[in-house]
Design a binder for these strands. Structure first.
Lengths: 259, 259
DNA sequence: CGATGTGTTGACCGGGTTCAAACAATGTGG
DNA sequence: CCACATTGTTTGAACCCGGTCAACACATCG
């Protein structure tokens, strides 16, 4: 993995359970992303950058000028309140854009931090805009990326506001696995490069609660811990996660719906 | 103004400690917005629409084709999970755009509902893109709006994950008042066109908790209920709300920070 | 080896939910 | 005009999920 030169593994990884074929990832998982990256490569002067776990692509308050696209690896986004509270606000996988928040007021509003060795493609925003004049597909790409980010943020909110702690963790793992699957990466054996504290921060709960939730998920065989360490885990069936969320919606502190 | 290189001054994000004089809204509150609306008017064929409280501008699942800009009134955005949970995901005031979430996959992902009599300007997305070729300022406008929406969503997340129920309500009222102030509307006497249940849904708590929180805020004289009804209230000093949030950060179930 | 960072688990506590009752505002029809 | 229903708000009391505090189990690394 992490072979930076060789882009898509060209893998045609068919989803695990044949059941959910329709909702599943297309056979050509990651094809769109590969295309998008190619388009960028062909129309823009790109600055490629290799980074390691913990490296920062940009920081909150820094002058905005560039947008960034993940070529490999995973990044986390961290925002801060005026009084210094910090918040893991999201994750960006291959093909995702970073830095949109800087457009409005000329400064980035958050940190973007690599979670493992990764490659990021950067280019000036104004250069991008110029290129968009000649390549409308490029503009479509940008808008789709922003649109998806908005939608994703709302899904986050929904999960946060309507799910119990256990369900939230399950839903997070589902999201994570699906993000990987959509890019043609394996999901049956994943390594979270996050501490429990970070997961908890993102999900609005304490690390102990995350730990307990994951233990419970493992007990119910919705996930399984790999041999070595509790950081890497297996997700035999993504639908099992979905069902767990659904199940925990019925019984408990349930419906925070209107009426 | 609105040039790509020199973005908006942005009212927000000034050091916390500063007394609210300098963070206050410019005398020309709403000037940017007025300019933006004018630009739209001058460069696009716009369909103006008058709507009443409860009217829907677009619905989740509906085919995407138009973007919308609030000209007057306030709109709420409601998203749904696959299993039908509904979630108030945000509010849009004068000058705010709506419908970005539809760009990525060709269908709106949420409902946009008027909260009172309002006017909304709508236009086709493809028409907008064409106009952007000749009027780059227009494109800058669009991007700034999307950028702000992303930033705002993250602020929401931050508030949700790190604040107690009381502080969350206070922070919500601060946000609401500032949104009005930034558009030159009065903030000392505002009418929430939301039920407690809706506020609670947005903030991830039950209506009873919202009610109790507001009672407490009134008891501490951070807000005051107007004579008639508990729906309209006065906010004598926005900074008092900020201070309340700060205060409740110290004592209680406080820091959900990392480490 | 100890040191440090991370994860797990238990016991206790408290903030927020749940359930319930009463009240306020508004509207409807006789 | 009042009786009455409806919808929204407030407040109390009991309960419980998730936070807090603490002890321990493992890693990895010097």
């Amino acid at each position: 993995m992490l072979s930076i030169a060789a882009p898509t593994p060209a893998v045609v990884r068919v989803p695990h359970t044949a059941r959910h074929v329709d909702r599943a990832v297309p056979q050509t998982a990651g094809a769109h992303i590969a295309e998008a990256l190619k388009l960028l490569q062909d129309t823009l002067p790109i600055q490629r950058r290799l980074v390691h776990a913990g490296d920062t692509i940009y920081q909150a308050g820094e002058r905005f000028g560039c947008l960034h696209v993940v070529h490999s690896g995973i990044f986390k986004i961290i925002t801060y309140s005026a009084d210094g509270r910090e918040q893991v606000a999201g994750f960006h996988f291959k093909g995702d854009w970073m830095g949109f928040d800087g457009i409005a007021n000329g400064r980035y509003g958050c940190d973007a931090v690599a979670m493992d060795t990764a490659e990021v493609w950067s280019f000036r925003y104004d250069t991008l805009l110029q290129a968009c004049v000649e390549h409308p597909e490029l503009l479509a790409l940008v808008h789709a990326a922003m649109s998806r980010e908005i939608t994703r943020d709302r899904d986050s909110l929904l999960s946060l506001c309507t799910l119990s702690a256990d369900a939230r963790v399950a839903d997070f793992l589902r999201y994570w696995a699906e993000s990987l699957a959509a890019r043609g990466l394996r999901t049956d054996q994943i390594t979270l490069r996050l501490t429990r504290a970070e997961i908890g921060n993102y999900l609005g709960m304490k690390l102990e609660t995350v730990s307990r939730a994951m233990s419970r998920l493992a007990r119910e065989k919705v996930i399984r811990f790999a041999e070595r360490g509790r950081r890497e885990l297996q997700i035999p069936d993504i639908d099992a996660l979905r069902e767990f969320v659904q199940r925990s919606l019925g019984a408990p502190a349930a419906s925070r719906t209107l009426q």
